[in-house]
Every structure is written in C-alpha cells, then in structure tokens.
Nucleic acid binder design. Sequence first.
DNA 1: ATGGTGGTAAGACCA
Length: 251
Amino acid sequence: MLIATWNVNSLNARMEHLKEFLKSVDIIALQETKVEDDKFPEKIFNDMGFNCVYKGEKGYNGVAILSKFEIDSVERDFDWIERGQKRILMVEIKGIKLLNAYFPHGRNIGSPYYEYKIEFIEKLADYLKDFMDDRLIIMGDFNVAMENKDVYAPDILQYSIGFSERERKALKKLYEIGFVDIFRMFNNEAKQYTWWDYRANSFKRNAGMRIDYIWATNKIAKNFKNCFIEKEMRAKPKPSDHAPVVAEIEI
DNA sequence: ATGGTGGTAAGACCA
C-alpha cells in the first residue's frame, strides 16, 4: 500500500489537486488544513472511500489523516505539546501506530515562536520514546532540514529558520531515539527537496529544503519498498509550497 | 538585510 504526507497549505485551496492525488494513495497525512472541524469536507472523502480523522482551526494549522483502511483508534490530546494549536494526531491502522505532525515554523531564531518550536520537538521526543519497540510511523511537515544535502544553500541557511543549529540538534535527538528516515533508505542524493518558497522563483531555481518526512521504527522500516517525492505536484498551477512524500509499504 | 508570493479573509498575520 501507499502512504503519503502532504502539507496542502489550505485544504480548501488544494481540494482539486488533492482529489486527483488521492486516486493514487491508500493513507495520507495532511498538514495545514486551515479548516475548522465542523467545516471539514468529510463526506467528499468518504465518497472516495476514505475514513477521516481531523483536528483543525480557522485559518491556521490543522492536521488530518485519511485512510482507505479501518482506523482502529485515535489519539488527539497532545495539548501539552501543542499548547492550543492543532498540530498532532495519532491513529492505529492495521496494527501500526501512525503519528501525523505539523511542527511549528519558528519564525525567527531566538523569538518566542522559535522556543515554542524547540520545546515542541523535545516534548514530542519525550512522548515517542515509549513507543520505539512498536510498529510506529511518524510523518508530516517537521519544518527542519536534517543535513547539508537537504538544503539549497547550507552555508547561508545555517543562520536561518529551518536549518539553525538548535533546530537540527533537536530534530537529530528526536531521530536518534530510534527512527529510520524512509526516504533515505532509497535515495541518497542531494537536492531532493519537499518545500520551495513561493517567492524569488525558488521552485524554478530548485532552491528548496527537505523538511517533510516519513520516519519509522526498526520494527516496521524493513517493510518499506520505496519512497519518493511527488515533485510534479509543486509544478502545477496554484500549488501548495510543499510536495507530497509517498512511501510504498508491504504489510 | 530586505523583500519577494500565497492563504485567509477582508486588514493584518502567518508561512
């Protein structure tokens, strides 16, 4: 089956692209839905064969998981990490725990938003360390690039949001509790990005960053057969600034 | 260092 993660940057604005993309996946984790729960277009997805779990707010943030398979349990209470914002959902499907996360952006290094981002990553690591012997997949927009080869200009961006030292350290610490970066199991090349700024012709120049991930514990990582970035989605008219990441998994 | 574009929603705010 195919699982995917995609920051759609508004569900409403991306509905037509998403409906097309859903034809090719079985489970998808969405971020930045920007829609309140009572306005979530659940019926449209149900009619396409997907079960839905969602947690949103008006205009900002918001996450959802759509699944062609039964969703056996849902955990939505992550407020001690999110602190009022709608950013994390966890479900269990076919005996696999699946966590969808939209990490905070952080705005500027040293700002209160930056501290909130660092704390968010640390608290998430603290929460997940108890699940490392499980079949666990975490996926989403982590808003931090891991390595030099994951950004277009590491020398400059090391002083910018998304690639600063403290962000990378926090993300590395989360990673090292025992995750495998599924994309890197199949592709070790540089310049494999998932996000390009709308501004400054970034996509045409391939000035991007790899900040969207599918990570898995060892228990389940061996079941993955492929992983790729659906870059064509970013080339469409009216795109999200993120491209989906898709992984093939054998269960 | 600044400002570039896009989404929401109707003027900033967020990314």
